[in-house]
């Protein structure tokens, strides 16, 4: 688990403290500080984990808990627009720009797609804001069992939100439906070709990069390399192309290639490799196979549409 603890609050506590932060009697201060080191405000950590982390990456800012004056309620979430909306709009605008570059959209087409984006984004924001509200002001003590349980639940809920963000404009969204209805045949063909080309290019880059490592580890000759590469290129997964999915993740890409290799017809490869090479390659394939559920969390590949 990649785990980043930001200690901004801890580094300059006086700077981050507001008027209503001060609280307990002085004799409790030392004990309070020690206790606070294990307290985590899940609400304050919600957005950073939903929007800025992926897969099994987690960011936990320590010591951001406000020690409240006894009897005072937890401060409410800041009023104003949900951060989900601005982030969702940004992803939608990037996608629309890309489509417009490829298809040259008419004004009506653009307007229809913008409306669909806005609708999908608001629906997403409602779902994520509901989750966020559940954690507003929720502070857990990470050193006790109940705190650990809540943290685990928090991780599951955040994962669900991340998945919704990844799938924001994918099949089943209003945007996908409007896009299918709005574009004419020629535009759709251009778009499909461009998406397929980008996806293939991305996959072939991943395969080639990972095969360099295999070259070093297994000592493939040119013919063996060609066989393995062709087998992998023939099993191209539906890679996500959105900005959220395209942050480089070398380890996940490596595991995706090994996992895909584990699914190819083994017989021709085994016949072409020496026994030692096959054993070494099989170890890599097993690594990929073992990482499948982890790979799903990374969001590199689109999930297949659920049957109606």
């Amino acid at each position: 688990m990649a785990f980043v603890a930001g200690l901004v609050g801890a580094a300059c506590p006086s700077a981050s403290r507001a008027e209503d932060d001060r609280v307990e009697s002085s004799e409790d201060a030392a004990a309070g500080v020690a206790r606070d080191a294990n307290l985590v405000d899940l609400g304050a950590n919600f957005d950073a984990n939903v929007f800025d982390q992926r897969g099994d990456g987690w960011m936990l800012r320590g010591n951001v808990v406000r020690r409240r004056v006894n009897g005072q309620p937890t401060p409410a979430v800041e009023p104003g627009e949900s951060p989900t909306i601005s982030r969702g709009r940004r992803v939608g605008a990037a996608r629309l720009d890309r489509i417009a570059r490829i298809c040259t959209l008419a004004d009506e087409q653009r307007r229809a797609l913008e409306l669909a984006i806005e609708s999908d984004v608001r629906e997403l924001a409602a779902a994520i804001d509901a989750e966020r509200r559940r954690y507003a002001g929720v502070t857990v003590n990470m050193s006790d069992q109940e705190g650990q349980r809540r943290w685990h639940q928090f991780q599951q809920d955040v994962q669900r939100c991340r998945r919704r963000i990844e799938e924001l404009f994918e099949s089943g969204s209003l945007f996908a439906g409007v896009l299918a209805l709005t574009l004419d045949d020629s535009q759709r063909e251009r778009l499909d070709t461009e998406i397929a080309s980008r996806r293939s290019f991305l996959w072939s880059t991943m395969v080639a990069t990972v095969l360099l490592k295999v070259d070093d580890a297994v000592g493939l000759d040119a013919e063996q390399h060609r066989l393995v590469e062709e087998a992998l290129l023939a099993r191209e997964p539906r890679l996500r192309l959105d900005e959220s999915a395209r942050r480089s993740n070398a380890h996940a890409e490596q595991m995706l290639v090994y996992s895909t290799l584990a699914d190819v017809d083994a017989a021709p490869l085994q016949a072409a490799l020496s026994e030692r090479q096959w054993r070494a390659l099989a170890t890599l394939m097993n690594q990929g196979r073992a990482m499948r559920s982890w790979l799903e969390q990374q969001g590199l590949v689109e999930r297949p549409a659920e049957a109606p």
Binding site: R98, R101, I102, T193, E194, S197, R198, F201, L202, S204, T205, A208, T209, L211, L212, D215, A222, H225, R246, S248
Partner: peptide, 23 residues
């Protein structure tokens, strides 16, 4: 040559990620 070809492809992939290249 394979190594050089991968380096070229990675350069273009990086550009594609940052600049949204066409095919």
């Amino acid at each position: 040559e394979r190594r050089a070809a991968v380096a070229r492809q990675r350069i273009v992939a990086k550009l594609d990620e940052q600049l949204e290249l066409s095919a």
